[in-house]
Design a binder for these strands. Structure first.
Lengths: 276, 276
DNA sequence: CGCCATGTGGAATATTTGTTCCATTTTGGT
DNA sequence: ACCAAAATGGAACAAATATTCCACATGGCG
């Protein structure tokens, strides 16, 4: 005997929310559609906005946004917002406990792992929208587009990121040079004035990457950095820094934020090329 | 004649805040030091937390955190928080309007790209949760965990995926062999019975990757494939296939789905190791 | 054309959150 | 060991925010 024809459970994850949003949008009246489409595109705002702010952004009354939340199965805005703030329960994550529970049941664990990583991915993507300002990205794109050669360095976990970047820059016709290997990073032999260096390193930071950034900066080369924490030592030598925080699952992190940022960077360069 | 010995202006940017934090931390008493050091390391939490939450995370009383804000020159927590929420004001203008003005300002175009790629990432992650069943993932994980050597092959866009996989397998102690380079893939020289091959290729499919999968399969090697479409020719030779559909933006695709799948795979292998 | 069902937004209320106050504890100097 | 100054945390108060309610508008259908 509920007020709504089909009383639903509240979505418990970002994925579920997105699915419900996509499923329900057609059956919504005008104003709720407005809410749905704006919210869909600006999920990351929910964590840091009040109902009135979201309502205003959607160009509806606060009470309408309230009904929107309820139409999705939430008790109200607070519960919806909780979904996006929940990640920060990583304060005292009882790390050990999660690890233990992870291998207690193998069959279930694998299926849970996938949804956990997908969820962590959603959150990482939200996080870059929140922490990266587009003007930094824009300045880096301009710097790379006009560089003589773009040097890429990233070891271990960061290597996938720079190798992807190398592929993208190549496709765009931007001269790029991927620095490989341990002990082989050679700033003096190959890096010249007018070049830029794009250095990627995640905590714990790779000494070699940091030293290459330092050497380049000291020779007057523009250095851009991509990392996952505010304490990256490359920051000291970099003209611009990008921070891509990744949510973790059982101590492992995927590379969603970093890959998305670098891909955006590449496409952004293309936009610049097309304008000139 | 202020209450505080040196009345300061409130920091107007995150950089200023950090400088003040670093400059003042030594002169702070115990509890304020706690606030400063936790806050320094978890700046990103401020935007989405209440005073009580921050205070609790710092292990101090809310009133202490309040004084901490004031010691930094803010009128209170709200003003400090404003610093981290302020940047989102730029999202307030109606979205449709911004769409039209895409070319007039580079930073706006870049910002639009970032939200588009984040959105594409969300969709890609949803897609794997919907199309990949965990038992396939589980079987691949078991196959890899018990292989003599895991051979990895992926060229061009897929290379970042396999190089990431190579890093992860290495970290887990799974013997892995990353096959590099064009024309150099050599099935006969290095792949032996008991090995498995993990082949990654996205449309348009790389001939060399497909041929290596074929050669391996014909020699009785177990082949696993990861791709982005049902029509991948590797499927013909593979024991198991993973399909990671990626959404595109302006003809470019990030690698969210593929990276998330492979990371899940790796952690899944670790789970198996811990059970035995 | 008028009625009912549904959608809408402003204004009232309840709840949460930020902020201040002050009694008590701790610290450091003599 | 004593005192003064500083720091601390609980509890009261103020402000902001979420949520509900209801009068009004709108659109479909007899």
């Amino acid at each position: 005997m509920s007020d709504h024809p089909h009383a639903q459970e509240a979505p418990g994850s970002v994925s579920e929310l997105l699915e419900r949003l996509d499923g329900a949008i057609d059956s919504f009246p005008k104003r709720l559609k407005q809410c749905a489409s704006f919210t869909r595109r600006h999920l990351h705002l929910i964590a840091v906005s009040t109902v009135s702010e979201m309502a205003k952004a959607c160009d509806v009354a606060p009470s309408v946004y309230m009904r929107f939340c309820q139409a999705l199965g939430f008790s109200g805005y607070a519960e919806l917002q909780g979904l996006f703030r929940a990640r920060f329960a990583e304060f005292r994550p009882d790390y050990e406990v999660r690890l233990a529970s992870l291998h207690e049941d193998g069959a279930i664990a694998t299926s849970r792992l996938l949804t956990d990583f997908a969820e962590a991915g959603h959150k990482s993507l939200l996080s870059i929208a929140n922490t990266v300002t587009s003007d930094v990205l824009d300045r880096i794109a301009r710097g790379m587009a006009s560089a003589r050669v773009v040097h890429l360095v990233g070891l271990r976990r960061a290597f996938a990121v720079v190798s992807n970047m190398s592929y993208l820059l190549d496709k765009l016709g931007v001269p790029a040079n991927l620095h490989y290997g341990a002990g082989m990073l050679n700033a003096h032999g190959a890096i010249f004035p007018g070049d830029v260096l794009f250095a990627v390193t995640f905590a714990p930071f790779s000494d070699e990457t940091v030293r290459l950034a330092e050497a380049a900066a000291k020779r007057g080369i523009t250095v851009y950095g991509l990392t996952d924490s505010e304490h990256c030592p490359v920051a000291e030598w970099a003209t611009e820094m990008l921070i891509a925080r990744e949510d973790e699952v059982a101590g492992f992190r995927a590379l969603n934020a970093a890959i998305t940022l670098t891909t955006t960077l590449a496409v952004s360069i293309r936009t610049l090329q097309q304008q000139s």
